[in-house]
Each structure stands twice: as C-alpha cells, then as structure tokens.
Computed example of a mutant assay.
Amino acid sequence: MNTLQRALALGFGAALIQALMLIAFAWPAANTAPRDLPLAVTGPQAALVAEKLNQVSPGGFEITSPADEAAARQAIADREVYGAIVTGGGAPRVLVASGASPIVAQQLSAMAQQLSGVPAAAVEDVVAADPDDPRGGAFGAMVLPLVMSGIAGGVLLSLLVPTVPGRLIGLVTFGVVGGLLSMAIIQGWMSIVPGPYLALAAVAGLVSFAVSGTVVGLATAVGQAGIGIGALTMLLIGNPFSAATSAPEMLPQPWGAIGQLLPPGAAASLLRSVAFFDGAGAVKPLVVLLVWAALAVALLGIGFVKSRGATPAPATAPESEPVPA
C-alpha cells in the first residue's frame, strides 16, 4: 500500500468512526422515552390510573400495585420502582426519586399535573438528588471522565509497561489512587455526591480498574489490536448506553439493558445506589464490575502464559571449526 492509498484508507476509517460515534451518542438521546419503566400505583383508584397510563403510554410503564403508600415508599427506597402514584383523598399525589434519575422524576412530575388536572400537582421527592446538583447534570458528567481516564490509563500501561506483573501493579495503583482522588474532588471539593467517602472511592477505583484492565488485558492477550477493541467497546457502546443521565428503561432496548452489563452503566447504577439509597440495588452492578475486573486479570494471565511460552531458548555458541594446518 503506497502513501496515497494509506491516506485514503485512514481518512475513510476516521470518517466511519465519526459516523459510529454520532449514532452511538445522538441516537439514544433522540429516542429517550419510558420503556417498561417500573412504577408503583396504589390506593382505591389504582386500577383506573394504571389503565389511563397504559392508554397514554402503551408499554411505557411496568406497573405494580403495593398495598398502601408506605409500601410504595419502601419500594422506591429499595430501588424497585422509580416513583409512585398515590390515589385517594382527592387528586392523585406523585412520589418521585430524583436521586435515582432526575429525568424520570421530571417526567413523573409533569405526568402528575396531567393526572390531577391542576397547575401545581402534589409531588414529593422522597429520595432527592444532591442539593448542589438537583438536575443530575454533574453526576452524569462524572461517569465519562471515569471511563475516558480508564481508557487512557489502559493505553499508557499497554504501550509503556512491557511486563505483565508491571501492568498489574500499575492497574492496582491506578484503581486505588484514582478512586481516592476522584471522590476527594467530586465529594470533598465539588460536593455533588452524598454518601460514605470510602465506599464511593472504592466504587470509583473498581470502575477504573475494570475499564483500564479490560484494555490492558486485551492488549496483553491478543496484541495491540486489543487496545482498540477495548477502547471502542467502552467508548462507543458502554458510555452512550450507560444511562448515567437518565435511566436504562428510558433508552432504546435492548441497548439500555446491554449498557448495564458494561462497566460505564454498572458504574452509574452502583454509584447511585451507594450515594442515595444506602446500597439498595447495588448487587447487580457490583457483580458486573467484579466480573469485568476478573476478566481483566484472566486476560493478563493468558498473556503472561503466552509470553512465557514464546520466550526464545538461549542461543548456543557455534562450534569453532578446526584451523587447517
């Protein structure tokens, strides 16, 4: 391939990546809407309200019917539902949880006005977002730097550290220091995420290890092509479908569900659980992150075994030929 052909191929490849990034980031944002969004409806008019919701938004809500308002509040606190509609005693009241998703809370608040028929419907935020970040914009923006820094750390370790043990040490160091430092900035300085500092730092560190470890592990196991595979997976699939600024049920399916099986989506869900819900709903995203971290270590092990097997045997000195008399 001559210089002109290489230039054309690289330009075409860059344009293709650009198109994929536009699709990955813009398509989910342009198609945000409830899709089987868990919602509780309780009270004497619960059946009527549920029927109306299904008519207005077919397939938009997965409606459950708790016994009473207390049970509905508990379901919100346990992250089983995003909100609740309480009927009886006048116009329906709506319970929301902006800590779980400010966008969903806003939509449920707007829906409350439609249901009640009054300009100022009764809406209560039972699990509120941080007062310094009421709309959740800073929280959503926090996930992308964690992913991007993880990719960057993985690339640097893959290119600059030649040995597998050295790469593993670098990953652990990055996870520990990165988690402590990032939460010191987010919680201590910016004060946009509540919750226990060490637990949140551990989550951030696990995310950093999982993302960078995937890049390093693939690079170690399959070569430099693994860097691109790992980075593009996290950037083009994991980040836009993480639902960090909305909710998995607000994204086109099955991409919303797939996003929760990748480190960026699991990171957003786990951080919300730890910060706002005292750990409720944390098991699934925690398991996802631990699986990715274990996969990274396994890939490093595979690369280590391959490197040991490919080590050339020491060359033997050639036998000297006899000098003719």
Rank of each mutant, 00 (worst) to 15 (best):
T42K: 05
P248W: 02
P44C: 11
D36W: 01
G175D: 00
A282G: 13
G117F: 05
P34N: 09
A97K: 09
L270A: 04
D133Q: 01
A75Y: 07
A293E: 01
V172R: 00
A247G: 03
G265Y: 03
L286D: 03
G170W: 06
K52E: 14
L232T: 12
A105S: 12
T64N: 06
L180P: 03
A15G: 14
Q113C: 01
G166E: 04
L37C: 09
L295S: 11
D125W: 06
A293C: 05
R167G: 02
I227M: 02
V147D: 00
P66L: 04
I63E: 03
D278F: 00
A141P: 00
I192L: 04
A112K: 08
L180H: 05
V193Q: 13
A7L: 15
A112S: 12
V155R: 03
R79E: 08
A24W: 08
S65W: 09
A257K: 07
S116Y: 02
T233V: 13
A313K: 12
G226P: 10
G213H: 10
V215D: 02
A122S: 15
L108Q: 05
V126T: 12
A71S: 15
V274H: 03
F139D: 00
G178D: 01
V172A: 09
A120W: 02
E249P: 00
V127K: 08
A91M: 12
P165T: 02
G136N: 09
I192K: 01
A202I: 00
L300P: 01
G309S: 13
P252R: 11
G259K: 09
S98G: 11
P134G: 08
P248I: 06
A70F: 03
A201C: 05
A40V: 08
A33S: 08
G281L: 11
A247Y: 10
F61M: 02
A152K: 02
T3Q: 14
P119S: 12
S208R: 00
G226F: 05
S149T: 14
L198A: 13
G43E: 05
V288D: 05
T316V: 15
F277Y: 14
A91L: 11
A282L: 13
V143F: 05
S65Q: 14
I185C: 00
L251A: 04
P58T: 09
L16A: 15
P263G: 05
Q18M: 14
S101N: 10
I186C: 00
A33Y: 05
L159F: 06
A310N: 15
S98W: 08
A225V: 15
G205E: 01
L251V: 02
P28T: 02
P131I: 07
R167K: 15
P131R: 01
G259I: 03
L262S: 10
L236A: 12
A70P: 04
S269Y: 01
A231L: 05
I76M: 13
Q113L: 06
L37V: 07
G117V: 08
F139M: 09
